[in-house]
């Protein structure tokens, strides 16, 4: 899993289709939200609908 390199401790549960990533410690609220945002951008890119331009 390449995920491991970026988010050490991250685990993918194939059966449950779930991903578990350890939360970083000592983050302020805003930074935590930003961290989750980055995570999503990295791993769950927005599917591009056929009619809409790429964001």
């Amino acid at each position: 899993m390449r995920l491991q390199r970026l988010y050490p401790g991250a685990r993918l549960f194939g059966q449950a289709k779930a991903l578990s990533v350890p939360l970083p410690k000592d983050l302020e609220d805003a930074a935590l939200v930003a961290w989750v945002g980055d995570l999503l951008d990295a791993i769950f890119p927005i599917p591009v609908p056929a009619t809409e331009p790429v964001e």
């Binding site: 578990s20 989750v36 999503l40 769950f44």
Partner: peptide, 25 residues
């Protein structure tokens, strides 16, 4: 973030214990 997650078609982005659980992955 919510909007972002919805666009990605996610149903769960939940902090549980020390982990963040994301589904469906």
């Amino acid at each position: 973030l919510r909007r972002r997650a919805q666009k990605a078609g996610l149903s769960d982005v939940v902090a549980m214990g020390g982990n963040l659980r994301i589904a469906p992955a």
